[in-house]
Design a protein around this nucleic acid. Structure first.
Lengths: 346, 346
DNA sequence: ATGAAAGCGCTAACAA
DNA sequence: TTGTTAGCGCTTTCAT
């Protein structure tokens, strides 16, 4: 069974019907007529026939010969999460602007899928990789530290590894948010965590703790709960939190999904935001402004993240042997809306 | 400048260090040891060395030789729209389960970008194409009607063209929603349209009109407004609608973005949902349940859409010369929440 | 059970 | 100005 989805007209065809060499045809059709001073006549013969036959050069052959694919790989934990979709959007658009294609893999938040995706992508000879890692360790990326393969991490990084990366300054974002809550009179602030041992989570928890310490508020570890960046985790932990005796007055949700879960729990318990409870979420999304009430959030520059990631990757592809360049942390900022209430100190 | 982003270990390497032929190595490493009755010994020698050297077969060479890429193309108008992201998610996951890679293109809702993306993808020898078209005509897809290239349309289709497609039964979805509104006593129901002359829009408007006619309610064309599936359009049109003398009592928003825009306008006008105005939106999204108030929506099976699209595409890739198979319309259903109020008939 | 050789379609030294 | 030739790394007849 031949697949005729792929062009059948080749350089050879054209060369033979014109009675000239393949090389000459190649030169003309790859825009090097000038360089090799091919005669006007020959050139137009070739061009005409090529057009007539609707010749499309085989990228396949070209790729093999040139040993490049003008393709990069993108591994995302969940493309249907708008946060990651925003990154993916910018990555594909920027890559295309540079003549590159993007092969997308969805690791589904699963480390094994992530590893498999990376292998798959590599076997497809992508020239570089943009990865939003999901795991708690970067062991499987050890090989990429030696700078012989272009990879850049996005959103999360591994502090102990020297891989290029772009992420948000989560620590500061978290600190700003917590400080804001404290300014509004909150002292018992819960922190709904995501997956432990990820830079995202640890940095955010760190920022939270630092803000508290900075105001001489003792950190109550029972107020730091949760273990996954999911709606489910947000829901469960909030339920639990609300059962406790001395209830918190504010919640810092370390992701948009966690916040949605928290919202569900809070409304089930018949509590009103912000009157009964204040909340700040990470990840500003278009719909955040339309929630009940409009949600105050820590916004990340995720479009920029995608753009910078592509830029960094191309830098590495172009100069593979320079050292990995290290990482960039993008600023975060607080988007003030209505989910936080000023309370009087007790 | 050699790009060593690409594996250097080849069959030849292995064959030479082991002193056997490339053919044998190829047979073992492509899983044909059994078929060619390669000896246990030889096989394990090969396997061991391959592992040790971390041999990764060059898909490039393989593709050229086999004249296939095990890659499909996916063209999406905007990956950061969760509706499309849901489709993309399923498409990539399903494709991977079948050993296929997915090259993603974001057409940014722009027909020229769409055309360019399709060409780009074809020159990359993708075996088939999944396309969420953005245009109001399918002229640029004329070539694909002759069944020599595998393409399937998702979300929208062109009624006058015989291209395989999967979409939602938008007409019925719209009808159900409108009927529901009428049952709750609404007679003046506005319809916030998206891009005209797209199947999605026309079908939804049709369903809306049919429901009205079915209840002998005269269609007031001044109540059908808007021209783009955007937040902006939803906002502007709602603003305008609310200025009118005999105000509508309910709004049917033909997309999630339109609904968000409507929400913004409604709240600016100081109106309360559902007390002052009822609303139903298309596209159920996780956050819809957390809006103020929780939004009643017409849900589409977009995950299934992605899945079926891949299935259809593979059917076409496997049997390219059978006829295009036509289209599938997936059922839609109403998700009841709190944005609709029962009103007494005036 | 294994190998030699041809070739997928293209590019690029090297020649002429 | 054009052509010859040698591959890129793999699969696959056809031999043995």
């Amino acid at each position: 069974m031949t697949i005729d989805t792929i062009s059948k007209v080749t350089l050879k065809h054209i060369a033979e019907t014109l009675g000239i060499s393949i090389t000459t045809v190649s030169r003309v059709l790859s825009g090097q007529a000038r360089k090799y001073r091919i005669s006007q006549e020959t050139e137009s013969f070739i061009r005409n026939l090529a057009n007539e036959l609707k010749f499309v050069p085989s990228q396949l052959a070209r790729n093999l010969r040139l040993n490049r694919t003008t393709t990069i790989g993108l591994v995302i934990p969940d493309i249907s999460n708008p946060y990651f979709a925003g990154i993916a959007n910018k990555v594909t658009v920027e890559a295309h602007r540079n003549g590159y294609g993007v092969i997308l893999c969805d690791s589904q938040g699963n480390i094994d899928m992530e590893i498999e995706s990376i292998e798959n992508l590599r076997s497809r000879n992508v020239e570089g990789l943009i990865l939003c890692p999901v795991g708690q360790s970067g062991q499987h990326l050890k090989d990429y530290e030696s700078n012989n393969y272009s990879i850049v991490l996005v959103d999360r990084y591994f502090a102990e590894m020297s891989l290029s990366h772009v992420a948000s300054d989560n620590r500061n974002g978290s600190k700003i948010a917590t400080n804001y809550l404290i300014d509004k009179g909150h002292q018992r602030i819960a922190c709904l965590q995501g997956l432990h041992n990820t830079s995202t989570n640890e940095d955010r928890v760190k920022g939270y703790s630092e803000a508290l310490s900075g105001h001489n508020i003792k950190i109550d570890t029972s107020l730091i709960a949760g273990d996954s960046f999911s709606e489910q985790s947000g829901y469960v932990e909030t339920k639990l939190l609300l059962k406790k005796p001395r209830r918190c007055t504010a919640v810092l949700a370390l992701s948009n999904l966690i916040a949605l879960g928290a919202l569900r729990a809070i409304s089930e318990e018949g509590l009103k935001i912000p009157d009964d409870l204040s909340i700040i979420s990470f990840d500003d999304q278009p719909y955040m402004a339309y929630l009940s009430p409009p949600m105050t959030t820590v916004a990340q520059e995720n479009a920029e993240m995608g753009q910078i990631a592509v830029k960094m990757l191309f830098d590495r592809i172009r100069a593979p042997h320079t050292n990995p360049g290290g990482g960039i942390l993008l600023p975060t900022h607080l988007v003030h809306r209505k989910s936080v209430k000023e309370i009087s100190l007790i």
